[in-house]
Amino acid sequence: MLFDSHLHVVDRERLNYPWLEGAGALNRDSLYPDYAREAHRCGITDVLHMEVDVAPQDIEAETAYIQTLSRRPGSLIRGAIASCRPEEDGFADYLERVLANPFVKGFRRVLHVMPDDLSEDPLFRENLRRLAGSRLTFDLCVLPHQIAKAIALIDLNPDVQFVLDHCGVPAVKDGVSDLWKSGIAEIARRPNVVVKISGVVAYADPDTWTVETLRPFVEHSIASFGWDRVIWGSDWPVCTLGGGLATWVAATHALTSGCGDDERARLYQRNAKRFWNV
């Protein structure tokens, strides 16, 4: 059974997504019932929703919408990772509102499509320190050349729990790079970081990738972080760019077929439940 730590729901009738206009095949609705139908078939039992970089004025509305979905009978949704803007003055007040809502398990501020120096903004760093000692995690979605900046942010906040999304967003179609490989090994030395084994199918060549294409990225990430600091995620609907949810689940099982039952259980669900207290 799988705990999916990375579901995106896109509903253009309810929320605004400025980035979708240039998103090609992802510029469409990706609704929870469509995901849930396939997730049930794939053995997914629990889900966290990941923010979808909605327009700033819709950030809290997105959380409210996902919380409504979680209340439907039989819903798989157990919580949400909410969007945030640590570089803005209103973050402290927003944080107080979020802390009052146990449905929100953490934050993410998209960084891989932002200027490299955003995380170096003094207000950004000051506001991130406010998460220290709280129950809220902070997801890092960064490109390989940005891992050094992520490490600097982590080192400034040793009491904040970070999550590295998508194995560090490697360019799978181009093969393993020294930059990515060394970056993963270095960021994994920080004990307050876990890594999501997620998203990699979207970065592979959609027509030619196989399990062996993905293996070095998944295995290096797990070897670097260890079995107690790895978490699985689908990155639906982005994973549809590389074959879809069922394809990624099947690849995950193939990639871990030689592992022990306890190791698979930690990756598949146990670590996530412990990490977010779900």
Rank of each mutant, 00 (worst) to 15 (best):
P122R: 14
P122I: 12
L123C: 08
L123E: 12
F124D: 09
F124H: 10
F124M: 13
F124S: 08
R125V: 15
E126Q: 12
E126R: 15
E126D: 13
N127T: 14
N127I: 11
L128R: 00
R129F: 01
R129D: 12
R130P: 10
R130T: 13
R130C: 07
R130S: 12
L131M: 01
L131G: 01
L131K: 02
L131H: 04
A132D: 03
A132H: 01
A132K: 03
G133Q: 04
S134G: 11
R135T: 15
R135I: 03
R135Q: 12
R135V: 02
L136S: 09
L136T: 07
L136E: 08
T137C: 11
T137M: 07
T137E: 08
T137N: 14
F138V: 06
D139K: 05
D139C: 06
L140I: 14
C141N: 09
C141D: 08
C141E: 00
C141M: 10
V142W: 00
V142D: 03
L143H: 02
L143E: 07
L143Y: 01
L143I: 00
L143N: 14
L143C: 01
P144K: 03
H145D: 15
H145E: 14
Q146L: 05
I147C: 08
I147W: 11
I147H: 13
A148S: 15
A148T: 02
A148M: 07
K149T: 11
K149H: 13
K149C: 01
A150R: 05
A150T: 05
A152M: 08
A152G: 15
L153H: 11
I154A: 00
D155H: 00
D155N: 08
L156I: 04
N157C: 15
N157E: 15
N157G: 13
P158A: 07
P158K: 07
P158M: 08
D159I: 02
D159R: 09
D159N: 12
V160N: 00
V160L: 09
V160E: 09
Q161L: 00
Q161V: 02
F162L: 06
F162I: 04
F162E: 05
V163P: 11
V163G: 10
L164F: 09
D165M: 01
D165L: 04
D165C: 04
H166N: 05
C167A: 12
G168V: 06
G168Y: 06
P170Q: 13
A171C: 08
V172E: 09
K173G: 06
K173D: 10
K173E: 13
K173Y: 13
D174I: 02
D174Q: 14
G175A: 04
G175K: 06
G175M: 03
V176P: 08
V176I: 10
V176G: 13
S177Q: 12
D178C: 05
L179T: 14
L179C: 11
W180Q: 09
K181G: 03
K181N: 08
K181F: 10
S182A: 15
S182T: 15
S182W: 03
G183C: 12
G183S: 10
G183D: 11
